[in-house]
Simulated scan of single mutants.
Amino acid sequence: MTDDPFVVHRSLLFTVAYEMLGSAADAEDVLQETWLRWADVDRSQVREPRAYLVRAVTRQSLNRLRSLSRSREDYVGEWLPEPLLTSPDVAEDVELAESVSIAVLTVLETLGPTERAVFVLREVFDMPYGEIAEAIGKSQVAVRQIARRAREHVAARRPRVQVSRSEKQAVVERFLTALRTGKLQELLEVMAPDVVLVTDGGGLVAAALEPIHGADAVAPILARANRVVDALETTTVWLNGAPAGRIEFDGTPAAVSLEVEDGRVTRIYVVRNPHKLTRLDELADLAR
């Protein structure tokens, strides 16, 4: 039924789960579990279906996040969120676009499960403290304290400067051109001296196991990428609400997201883990 509240609010529910988990695959599993539970609910007893479903997805996401914590600790190399193909329209909602950015999702990964849930529900979806308290099984006083700590934690680590879409797109295109041509000087010019490269191969494909710091170290690595494959193709795409890049190494895809400041790249996130690249051809439907 198209008027079923679960169907009506599915995009919102997926976005909540994705922001809490950083994984579209895990978010879909949470939605499936929530749907099965929703199917058994007496709808006549549910006064506010939207709030009820958000609480249900939050609880399922928390359970999933806690069960995933050990596997992420054992993850080979750096763990990055699963990139999502989005339309440029997502960027129109600035707060939503920022909250689903690879940069912010990576910061959220440094929060504990409860702190992450509170931050997402309060800061992104503006849920009342009382509803959050009910969703996570804490008092309102505790939720307010958790929200403050999480907000301060994220604020200290999120990108310092917000740039316009047009500026970021121009820098992304310059970076991808330099990467495609493999010209060292062009790569150095488009990157900040203190740039950081983070790559995620999941132990399945070649990737640095730790972040690489500094343009003098990063640029030669990127320049070599052009020479070690027969064909390197780059395309500007929209990932997680922002201009980004899709790279094909001899037909094998990778996703590249950038942080930009003062016209130069300050941070490069490269996802090569094939399990996280299955949605690069499928437009994600995100909503608040």
Rank of each mutant, 00 (worst) to 15 (best):
L121V: 05
N63E: 15
I102C: 11
S164N: 08
R43K: 15
E152A: 12
D285N: 13
L280V: 09
A206T: 13
V124K: 02
L36D: 15
G182M: 03
P274A: 13
R165H: 11
G245M: 03
R10C: 07
D194Q: 10
P128Q: 09
T181K: 08
K183A: 06
D285C: 04
R180A: 15
A231E: 15
I268D: 00
R267H: 12
A217M: 08
L204M: 10
T199N: 01
P193Y: 01
T58C: 12
A150F: 02
P128T: 11
S139N: 09
Q162D: 13
N273R: 05
A208T: 06
V143A: 09
P49R: 02
L286Q: 02
T114L: 13
A133G: 07
E115I: 08
Q140F: 04
R267E: 14
L62E: 05
E186L: 09
D126A: 10
I268F: 03
L187K: 00
P81Q: 03
R149V: 11
R148V: 13
R288S: 10
R55C: 11
I247R: 01
G241R: 00
E19M: 14
A284M: 04
P88F: 14
F175S: 04
M20Q: 14
S44M: 07
L65E: 06
A27N: 03
N226W: 09
Q169W: 05
P81E: 08
R10E: 15
A147I: 05
E233H: 08
E131A: 12
D194A: 11
V228E: 11
T86P: 05
V46M: 06
I268R: 00
L184Q: 01
T110P: 01
P81V: 06
R246H: 07
